[in-house]
């Protein structure tokens, strides 16, 4: 029965990764560079929720809403202050990547300064005894996480598929110059996808915080997973990123069957490595994988 339990654990982890990956992938698709600080957006979101809910004592749902709004704003700020000037100077993707790592270190340490290194918990939903499902133990909270994540992912998918902004995003993702010729303001679309992607990161942080502790370094692990999930599935495709994330969650949890659990993060990177080497365009095969 241990296999079922590992599978369920994989699903839970995968749901969180999928939320991180889908925001990341939205940003990547229109902007075409690796926004590594995306994981730290989740960290900032978690501390925002902690501030709104535990320190200011707001209603949980209002606090969650404020969190999503503030992470969206954070995404916009990062785009306007750092990425847009760099893009305007036609900096290479590698430079943008270095800038995003700089941003990540900056935000992570800012949280460390503001909130201290000790672990915070939200304790909104008390820990309840898990229910047994085909031999695996799963808590009601974890079912909520999986369901919410799936619902959100469907919502994002419908959004990019059918709304006007979603279509504009896909157009810019497909061919930025052509989209501009057709009268779309590519910069504005890129900024909007930053807001949207970071907002999704905010939602991810709400779900993460329900189950895990809040730490300044939590974002690094999350972006590694989200990013790996996105690469595995096909980085600029939303369904691909989601698929890859679930796959990663499951592989990782089965991996620690044989390996010490400390290697969990390394499993993600080994998988990432393999995919970069063998199939950089991911499972769903978006051929724009290798770009200079």
């Amino acid at each position: 029965m241990i296999a079922v339990q590992l599978f369920v654990n994989g699903l839970i982890a995968g749901s969180i990764y999928a939320l991180v990956a889908s925001g990341f992938s939205l940003i990547y698709a229109t902007n075409r560079f690796v926004h590594f600080a995306h994981g730290t957006t989740v960290t900032v979101g978690a501390y925002m929720l902690f501030t709104f809910f535990s320190l200011l004592g707001l209603n949980f749902f209002i606090a969650a809403f404020c969190t999503v709004v503030s992470t969206g704003l954070l995404g916009l700020l990062m785009f306007l202050l750092i990425y847009r000037p760099l893009k305007q100077r036609k900096s290479s993707n590698a430079i943008l990547l270095v800038a995003s790592i700089g941003l990540m270190i900056f935000l992570e340490n800012l949280m460390l300064l503001l909130f201290g290194a000790d672990v915070k918990t939200l304790a909104y939903i008390p820990v309840r005894k898990g229910i047994e499902l085909w031999g695996a133990i799963i808590t009601p909270l974890q079912i909520v996480i999986i369901a919410t994540a799936l619902l959100l992912l469907c919502f994002v998918w419908i959004f990019t598929k059918y709304t006007k902004l979603g279509k504009a995003m896909r157009a810019v993702a497909d061919n930025e110059e052509l989209a501009e010729i057709m009268g779309l303001n590519a910069r504005a679309v890129q900024a909007k996808s930053f807001v949207l992607g970071s907002g999704i990161a905010g939602l991810a942080s709400v779900l993460v915080v329900l189950e895990q502790n809040i730490e300044p370094v939590m974002g690094t692990g999350l972006i590694i997973k989200g990013f790996t999930g996105a690469i595995i599935g096909g980085i600029s495709s939303l369904p691909g990123a989601v698929l890859g994330s679930y796959l990663l969650g499951i592989v990782e949890n089965f991996g620690i069957w044989w390996l010490p659990s400390g290697y969990k993060d390394a499993i993600a990177f080994v998988l990432l490595f393999l995919f970069l080497l063998v199939r950089p365009s991911g499972i769903l095969g978006i051929s724009k994988g290798i770009k200079e």
């Binding site: 590698a94 990547l97 270095v98 990432l272 490595f273 970069l276 080497l277 290798i290 770009k291 200079e292």
Partner: peptide
């Protein structure tokens, strides 16, 4: 990493 370029190379080395 011989087939990777630019930011993909950077990410693989970060990995």
């Amino acid at each position: 990493t011989r087939n990777l370029k630019g930011d993909y190379f950077a990410l693989a080395t970060l990995g």
